[in-house]
Design a binder for these strands. Structure first.
Lengths: 105, 105
DNA sequence: ACCTCAAATCTATTTTCATCGATATGTAAT
DNA sequence: ATTACATATCGATGAAAATAGATTTGAGGT
């Protein structure tokens, strides 16, 4: 079992690699076949497959098979969830009620 | 020199660790002294210092010294930048003009 | 000046991750 | 069924990151 911090960290971990950010950028304009992504990045086929798995597992990217080819695209839902998550965790609470007491240093 | 993918990856890398997500959550309600954060996490003082450096370097967190103590808080600007960044890279372009040609598989 | 305490830095260790080559799997064409 | 090709998985390796203990730095207080 995985706690919420580990779960959330996974989404950001998916975005914390330069090659994966390049892939995400490629997917903004349209879905892409794995072989097309492979052409643009300087990595091996097995490494690309590994990155695509991480992106898909994070929910940011979806995939569909068409014959021999795998097509990848940004997932609207996954991307929205990520945005909501980031928004939630970085919102600064200006609390008027003084429940949250100061620490004794 | 660092390319944009590496630069952007750094922000998400800062958020890709469970302990750092816990710290960010603690900072939502108010600024915290390092010693207070240390009490809540199961990590050593040196490890905490390491995490705080990563969060500060990412721009998400700011710090101020008060006597012997270091106080950390969420940076409004840094957090907004992160949100804008995520929004930019996950926006799906529905392009009507057909500049972006299909790939030959 | 000396002592104390908080936090940063240094050094070493362990764990995680990116990467690749080789192999396996799945799909379609012959 | 056999072959060809795209992608996934496996196994190994090197690099990066998390972690802790020891030491150093910095900022009061006596």
């Amino acid at each position: 079992m995985e706690n919420k911090y580990e779960t959330n960290a996974k989404v950001f971990k998916a975005l914390s690699d330069p090659n994966r950010l390049m892939i995400v950028e490629m997917l903004q304009s349209r879905e892409r076949c794995a072989c097309e992504i492979l052409e643009d990045l300087n990595i091996s086929q097995s490494t690309l497959s590994h990155h695509m798995k991480i992106l898909c597992d994070s929910g940011l990217v979806g995939s569909r098979r068409h014959g021999k080819w795998m097509y990848y695209s940004l997932s609207k839902e996954g991307c929205d969830e990520a945005k909501n998550l980031l928004s939630e965790i970085t919102t600064i609470w200006h609390n008027s009620n003084e429940r949250d007491l100061r620490h004794e240093c």
